[in-house]
Design a protein around this nucleic acid. Structure first.
Lengths: 272, 272
DNA sequence: TTTTGTGTTCCATTATCTGGAACTTGATTT
DNA sequence: AAATCAAGTTCCAGATAATGGAACACAAAA
């Protein structure tokens, strides 16, 4: 499992995957990633599967309650997905190790703290401790954001070796979310160099306007898990100076999580 | 789709499901529902699949990143499940309609408010607005609890017709979580009668000791969706009198959600 | 009535899954 | 060192389930 070159294949939408299961999951994802209920024809176009095949695939997904068919025949995500995810989230040992540390960091800063894990070229948020002052939507746990424009993402990338980093960059499309988003690998690589030296990364409103954060990478000894934590706040309340002042604490907490995880997670994979 | 008698088959652990996909999901669920990383042999015993078959099934699940294989060869849930669930949660229109109402109810009571949807004989929590005073673990979104011993569950059951209710009861195993948990269908049915008259249900420390709630069912016109909301609090802080005082508000908010959902969700299924 | 658009069903073909058995690999014991 | 055991992996002929083009129903629009 040292060379996942071949395993790290495509997950792009509409692409068929591993035999039958892959096709089914690709269809499921197509429905889940749309915003409304999807009619048969919509999915037919999006998935590229032949009619007969798609129809059977959908019936199976409905039978498994991964999808639900409404009375108007359109398809929506079913509840089973949520239940599966809840179980896998609440049984996640890495998250469990990190949680008290996240709380501590939250106490210290008063702002929202995130825990994210690198997956391909994306950061998946795995836990979150809300800002006291926030009134906004709850948990974005499970949300995936591009690594190149998020604090945790860039911090995580700074841990990668040459080959792995190149692979990520090859998959990255530099979409300009804001005026400050990196537009090319060149500037990103320069910043990653700096992050390696400093031990922490900033998000200077690169993913969302008016949102900043400081992040630090988490390395778990004896595991190929790459993760990170961040302290996030709105630009009007959190200055860059403030973030810099927090950086040392963020680094310290990240290290503490990594150390504890190395012990408690055993020598397995330390998996997400 | 009026008679889901045949569709409402087994989801029990270890049971194979629909052809290939069903088997794969059954194996996935077996791993997800265990607490630690599972070795091949563990899963072999739990799933009842033959060695060769199971091995291929697991490889496929790993290739799809629904599972991850650690260095010590054991299997854990992969991140893809979390991402899929996030997307399906954040795109859930019913939840979206309900959210502001939940907030309102939370403002009113100061205690935790839940939104749950009935699925088979269980309530799946779909949203939650935290108590101001809580310091406990965040979102149990996606958690499934038995219907017969939760406020929302009993409220939801009170909306069902004879046949449907009987089906649920047939699937229900009356486990005594606390001293107050219903121990048989008889007492439960009696209470459901009362809930039908009153329009709201209580959880008198039936699922968890020291935890009480008031709940009201949500019916969405033109949809077979059955759901409910509740206000929950610790027994030391929330008396039964207090809950009774809140009941009218809970009913009102439930009605408001149902009405708005009927309009905004269209005549489809009003999906989960 | 004809036409167009959707969703569903059929069924011969074939690819994929099936699963018992043989084969590694590594640790533990004799 | 050899033997034993346990855990995981691979193999392959046979059975099964997936495939997908085409025909079919049904409704709404022309």
């Amino acid at each position: 499992m040292s060379d996942d070159v071949s395993a790290a294949k495509d997950h792009a939408a509409g692409e068929a995957g591993t035999g039958t299961l892959g096709k089914a999951i690709a269809v499921l994802e197509a429905v889940v990633n749309s915003d409304g209920p999807q009619r048969f024809t919509d999915i037919l176009a999006r998935s590229g599967q032949p009619r007969g095949t798609l129809h059977r695939l959908l019936s199976h997904l409905v039978e498994e309650d991964l999808l639900v068919q409404r009375r108007d025949l359109s398809y929506e995500p079913g509840l089973r997905l949520l239940t599966l995810a809840y179980r896998s989230w609440s049984g996640n040992r890495f998250r469990d190790v990190a949680e008290p540390h996240l709380r501590h960091l939250h106490e210290l800063t008063g702002e929202t703290v995130h825990l994210g894990v690198l997956r391909q070229a994306e950061i998946v948020y795995v836990d979150k401790v809300e800002s006291r002052q926030t009134v906004r939507m709850s948990s974005q746990i499970g949300k995936a954001s591009p690594a190149y424009c998020t604090g945790i993402g860039k911090a995580a990338l700074s841990l990668l070796g040459h080959t792995e980093l190149d692979e990520v960059l090859a998959r990255t499309e530099f979409h300009a979310f804001t005026a400050h988003t990196h537009r090319s690998a060149a500037t990103l690589l320069a910043e990653i160099e700096e992050i390696r030296r400093e031990g922490h990364a900033f998000d200077r409103e690169e993913h969302e306007a008016e949102i900043r954060c400081v992040a630090a990478p988490i390395a778990v000894a004896g595991s190929e898990l790459v993760a990170g934590i961040s302290v996030t706040g709105p630009a009007y309340r959190v200055t860059m100076e403030q973030l810099s002042a927090w950086a040392a604490s963020v680094r310290a907490v990240a290290k503490a999580i990594g150390d504890e995880a190395a012990i408690r997670l055993g020598p397995g994979r330390g998996g997400p």
